[in-house]
């Protein structure tokens, strides 16, 4: 990039936490005035490792994140955390409470924790997750941990953002029929059975490992491991980090598969942005040309396919 950085992007690149936090709020509000900043920051990033953590509510995601932060900090890594909790479907409000589990890092300059509300999305993340990752990446955080809302079976948006996905469960995750169902159980790079002191944890982990071993082999050659952890004591966290390192080593050895994954994520990100832009144009904006075309469709002089094709093609340079 040349010298002319937009002011907010320049402040973020200079390490300004308040500027970054403010930019993130504007991204959450869908403010199109920050697009030039986000664009500049995207081009400045690309170094961070993005670790996604997902799993049902109460399974110990935030507590495990706390343990991961501790060990990553001990290894000298700077860590950003994006922690998503649900928005109220009734009021739109939220109680974002994940920070509580990470309070021992509250005074650490090398840690930036941001709580986000899902704001009506159903994929387990917040709409501005991509922009948040862009901001933290540009700020030079080595690791960005993205913690989803507590999920059920079908919320897999984390795949569009994370370089590696950890799925947390406990021994109460159900029997082996649950395990062969399609959905979230297929997406993890590492499976974690947390609260491993609960009775039945090892049996659950064995059953899960069996189901995964029977799955189709992955194109990147990685065989997802199943690990036992007790997040609250930090036990198993070191082994988990070893497996994460092992995964990235494997990715480095299989660059084509890694590139394919990156390309899938870029496609997903572009699709989300294009989708939002089209929704804004069709849903709220009142463009004269668009209004006339809609009138023409109503009069059967045109048709919805015609307008859809025009909208998709007109914006591509």
């Amino acid at each position: 990039m040349s010298g002319a950085l937009p002011p907010a992007a320049a402040a973020v690149l200079a390490g300004g936490r308040r500027a970054a936090a403010r930019l993130l709020s504007l991204a959450e509000a869908g403010d199109s005035g920050i697009t030039t900043d986000i664009k500049a920051l995207y081009r400045a990033g690309g170094q961070a490792r993005i670790i996604g953590i997902t799993g049902p509510p109460g399974v110990g995601k935030s507590t495990l994140v706390d343990g991961l932060i501790s060990q990553l900090r001990a290894a000298g890594k700077r860590v950003a955390v994006i922690s998503v909790d649900p928005s109220s479907p009734v009021s739109g409000g939220a109680v974002l409470g994940d920070r509580i589990r990470m309070s021992r890092h509250a005074e650490d300059d090398g840690v930036f924790i941001r709580s986000m509300a899902a704001r009506g999305t159903l994929g387990g993340l917040a709409p501005a997750t991509g922009d948040a990752v862009t901001i933290f990446d540009a700020m030079g955080f080595d690791i960005i941990i993205v913690e989803t809302v507590g999920v059920g079976q079908n919320e897999v948006d984390i795949l569009s953002h994370a370089h590696i996905v950890l799925l947390l469960q406990t021994a109460h995750g159900g029997d082996d029929v649950q395990m062969v169902k399609a959905g979230i159980l297929e997406i993890a790079d590492i499976y974690v059975v947390n609260k491993a002191d609960a009775p039945g944890s090892e049996k659950f982990a064995r059953a899960l490992a069996e189901v995964i071993a029977h799955g189709a082999p992955r194109t990147d050659g990685w065989a997802p491991p199943v690990l036992l952890t007790m997040g609250i004591e930090g036990s198993g966290v070191a082994a988990l980090l070893d497996q994460i390192d092992g995964f990235f080593a494997r990715q480095a050895a299989a660059p084509l598969a890694a590139q394919a994954r990156q390309a899938r994520q870029v496609r997903a990100r572009v699709l989300a942005l294009a989708d939002a832009a089209l929704r804004r144009r069709l849903g709220t904006a009142r463009e004269a040309g668009l209004e006339a075309l809609i009138a023409a469709i109503i009069a059967r002089k045109s048709d919805p396919h015609e307008l859809a094709a025009a909208l998709v093609h007109s914006s591509v340079p």
């Binding site: 109220s88 739109g92 409000g93 939220a94 409470g97 920070r99 509580i100 709580s115 509300a117």
Partner: peptide, 13 residues
């Protein structure tokens, strides 16, 4: 109560 009023509360305990 703030949640029910549409506010995003960051609760740090």
């Amino acid at each position: 109560i703030l949640r029910d009023a549409g506010i995003e509360v960051i609760y740090i305990g």
